[in-house]
Nucleic acid binder design. Sequence first.
DNA 1: ATAATTTACGCAACCGATTGCCTTTATTTT
DNA 2: AAAATAAAGGCAATCGGTTGCGTAAATTAT
Lengths: 345, 345
Amino acid sequence: MSKKKNKVVTIYDIANELNYSPSTISRALKNHKSIGKDTTKQIQETAKKLGYRPNSLAASLRNNRSNNIGILIARINRPFISSLISGVENSARAAGYNVLISQSDDNYKNEVANAKALYDSRVCGIVASLSMETKNADHFKQFLEQDIPVVFVDRVPSDLNSYRVIIDNYSAGYKATEHLIQQGCTRIAHFAGAQHLNIYKLRKNGYIDALKAHGITPDKELLIYMNTMSFEEGQEATSKLLNMKKPPDAIFSSNDTAAVSAIMQAKKQGVKIPEELAVIGFNDDPIASIVEPALSSISHPAMKMGELSTKRILEHADKKIEQGVSEITVLDTEVIVRASSLRKK
Amino acid sequence: MSKKKNKVVTIYDIANELNYSPSTISRALKNHKSIGKDTTKQIQETAKKLGYRPNSLAASLRNNRSNNIGILIARINRPFISSLISGVENSARAAGYNVLISQSDDNYKNEVANAKALYDSRVCGIVASLSMETKNADHFKQFLEQDIPVVFVDRVPSDLNSYRVIIDNYSAGYKATEHLIQQGCTRIAHFAGAQHLNIYKLRKNGYIDALKAHGITPDKELLIYMNTMSFEEGQEATSKLLNMKKPPDAIFSSNDTAAVSAIMQAKKQGVKIPEELAVIGFNDDPIASIVEPALSSISHPAMKMGELSTKRILEHADKKIEQGVSEITVLDTEVIVRASSLRKK
DNA sequence: ATAATTTACGCAACCGATTGCCTTTATTTT
DNA sequence: AAAATAAAGGCAATCGGTTGCGTAAATTAT
């Protein structure tokens, strides 16, 4: 019936053990130069021996900043997002930081509330990808005012100066469209997402410019604006397109969900893919490789984007802060060609 | 050039403003009964007026417990897990808690390190699903010793008494197998996962008992033990099975990834699904509805499991703690019948 | 050998909220 | 009306590190 004391070891315990002051312990544990080499070593060894584990809450309170990185995204259970989070988590943890997550469910109010909550928990930085509804990014200013780095990823605001980790959506849209053109398609439809989100706008612009560059006049009827780019929206749009007098011979969808639904709908209507309808999506979600024929897509380096975001945050402290810093990291995308768009073998 | 003070408001500021002591402010803000009704109201209004936002770090330090719920899982970017996290996040945030995530990459050492990190950040509870490698759950004892609730989800340890939120894997395995039998299958193969994880063991047991209950003698050759149940493992196993002199007429896979790979491999070999080979998976991942023919599967209420886990943690504080409490929540699963196993129409 | 530095460490305030205990005033009991 | 109880708040310690400033001893410079 030995009852363990189970007392938590603090720097005061180490101080008592070695007859040093708590401040010396504190400094020694962080290898502060003003503490002697031998002393430092002795203290660190004793700390380990006693099983000392720092109380990060105390340090955070004192410093008014935690070791937590906040993530603010729309929905966790999306392939791209969960990979992004995974990247943030990996690199953050490797550096001794924790990761706090929050999702807005694509709701603006939730996003504002979550931003506040993360702010209140004194995160030392935040990685954010905007909700569908967000048109105003003022709720991030509180961070910037306190010099807490904000890294926007993927869905970034256009009116706020901060770090950004993005892909070149314009060029990706261009490349996707050009790929279809190279496969011999001429009537290329586009599933465009909500245009207040620059990622969708840019993809669309790339699409339009690619058409023009190849002497194809964009046809308004082939440009479908969608709301959430859901499976259902994709199905409906596809059905409409295929029933036109002059149906398209290709679709470039701004996401894979709608692209997959297009493939399935087309097949249902007896339209051959890619012969009669070539399809390319965006994101390279797992479903892209499973659908039949396999969906061509644009691959996002999601995990890497997460890692780079963390890096920006961790670096921030080291940097001299210039007014209105806004470092933009642009990553490459890749056209993943699969059967759904491969007409020429 | 008006420079905002931007000072953070504390209870001391409210105290000064109203000439009360900080303790009264603190109590009033939590509706402590020993503070007068009017006073409380006045203080709360002033707090709002001044834009007071509590410093949770200070409270956490004092209470030696944060408002953070920790999540410890193997990999974030898996459909089941990301939905689980989503469920935890939703309900936690609704209750004013934050969620800290950590992933082990299915590595035992990482899991131990993450547990330590979460412990050190004074989480008020933890939701955990074990890594593939974990055979020993001692790293969770530190939480229990401090009366920090641990809720194991899905992949739960067998040797530690704590909360559990699980599905009835045995019965799910039984149901899946029985479904195949009802479709007229008699040589049913099973893709079993690593047997030290009880979820896989139980699914396998359900499979075996269902066979026996229907007068079918389990054939060892049809029971394939896998390591990670990856796409590749599934492909290989399927290929092997189909090349047997007496190949199976059905496969019950313990996850969807391997099940989908089985479908694709079978098609590649010209085997008709479900006529010559019926397939059912487990988890009901998004890919299940996309593969052709669509994959039957067992659906997990992932998000709900997350919500219930949070609930357990939040309730914990209210409960009188009895020695070795171990409350188990078992959720229903559902057989989702799709084309891949539907032989009788 | 004495002054000027440097090295090594301690003191004590601080971060912001919480809470056991005590005091004062108001209300109730007998 | 005196005594007992309840109601409303305040005092001060506490949680565990962190850090500006100060000091004594050791080292270097002159």
